[in-house]
Write a protein that binds this DNA or RNA. Sequence first.
RNA 1: CGGGGCGUAGCUUAGCCUGGUAGAGCGCCUGGUUUGGGACCAGGAGGUCGCAGGUUCGAAUCCUGCCGCCCCGACCA
Length: 586
Amino acid sequence: MKLWSQFFIPTLKESPADAEIASHKLLVRAGLVRKLGGGLYTYLPLGLRVMRKITQICREEIDRGGGIELEMPHLHPAENWVQGPRWSAAREIMFRTDSAGDGKRAPREPEFVLGPTHEEVITPLVKAEITSYRDLPKNFYQIATKFRNEIRPRYGLMRAREFVMMDAYSFDVDDAHAIASYGKMKAAYEAFFRRIGVTAIAVEADTGVMGGSHSHEFMVPAEIGDDDVIYNEASGYAANREKARSALVPAGLTDAAPTGATEEFATPGIVTIAALEAAPHAVPADNQFKTLVFMGDGKPFLVILRGSDELEEAKLGSLGFTLFRAATPEEIEPVMGARPGSLGAVRGTIKNPGALAGVFADAAIRLIGNGVTGANRDGFHLRHVNVTRDLAITKFGDFRRVRAGEPDPTNGQPLQSRRGIEVGHIFKLGTKYSEKYGAAYTDDQKQSHPMVMGCYGIGISRTLQAVIEQSHDADGIVWPWAVAPFQVLICVLDPQLPEAMELARKLAVAAETAGADVLVDDRAERPGVKFKDADLIGLPLRITIGGKGLKEGIVELKARTSKDVLKLPLAEAETRIADAVRVRAG
RNA sequence: CGGGGCGUAGCUUAGCCUGGUAGAGCGCCUGGUUUGGGACCAGGAGGUCGCAGGUUCGAAUCCUGCCGCCCCGACCA
């Protein structure tokens, strides 16, 4: 039992000016966190209690899924990263540290980085410690602070520079066993989110800079989420838009025959799809070929899409470049012979085709058959361009952004789209890290093999905020039982009455014995203030002890989720409260 | 990092355009009246107006630079 007057819950009537979304406002207003700087937050006592509860449930479920807890340093020798496979891709999000020195000369020390994730630490550890198939599988995890120099921290704990994450790393003898480990973690995640009272759905996801073959993200549906989930309820298909597929291009599609010889026509000043759509040319966007130029590891490559489609940039990750970015007009012209707006991939029109690392076409351009594209001559386009006859395509792929309404790839029904917050991610990594660091084992035939890895993350602090985003009303937070900082609030309206406080202590003991954490509001505040604060901090059960009720011989019991107030005769109060707690505690 | 916005008391903010003693509400302190959904009255403390330059007799206000924060984009748990 905690007495409010001896605890620290600084609630606010007004929302801080820098908070935009409900959960961020409530985090601050309910006295859970305070901001230190952009993306940096202090967990106040109430917030810390929630973090601990989420952390503990996470630990229990990961343990149940076979995880072994350890803790690695937050400070990493940069050397570990330089040796790894993604130093160049990941260094931009890392904080580098050194000694503050004596202020007189530049410190000369090994370079350190603050850990954004721990593959670069765990893999060398496992390499050194595990060498036999007899010691596999192993799945190590920790729940610890991570540091990422987010370009734009946002929405309170939602995207912070310093945040708490559960990160796990599995090591298996082969692919089949790695998939089993992956499956166990997926089940553990589902159990975790269920227990903390959060709806999180597993969706297919892009692997990003982590690499690896496949992955799922766990998404909490929310309007303010950063990600779009493409899904269909009937089929159960769900994917991050970055990864989503659709059956837009029918499997049996036959390629259109040419309609005539390609023909150049003048389009002075027309450099956008929309402009070519307008009169006098009137070429529909879905009859145009859009030609984009990217730089992949220093070499230009082309991506061709339908004019009506958007590029889904994440999908270019499948092309195998370590780093890629859009090319600048200065880079484009010498290769293509024209500036953006008049580009095309028709054979023979590209000025310097040898410079290209490839021409990658989205499969949907096959729906065009014969269309219009840039002539690689400023102010000119080509018509009657046939996909198979004319375009210098290296490879077809899926590069377009899927839109709601397109057919589900599994059942053909229309796909839907909604926003979500990514709270967890699981990756099947393969041998990318184990090969790089030499983490290998010897099998029973004395053969050496790289271990097959998986890695898994849950954003604990982000999940905390996602809980609030998903569970609040106009008055404040509505905590799910399992993660509430306290489950029972005893509101003593007349704390100056000794019999009121005595009763509060008695009821607190009853609730605690039944399995609840109890907060007693013993402040010398007016009832209105106490009720407003009670709703704001959102504890699941509220017991009200007032002078009036005591004269009547009752106390009141109210759930945060309900408007109904139960009047409990004093003689029954302890048992009734204990029952109410047991029902919810399960 | 590109685009936009904002920095005034612990919090929310007015004042800035059109330069001339920095104001309110909440919170805090004292006293009193109150006491079942953010009370009222009286008194009080609290501000180098983000920082540094500049223009001016005079700058919160105009100009320049920097810093910080928020929003949109690319990245992520």
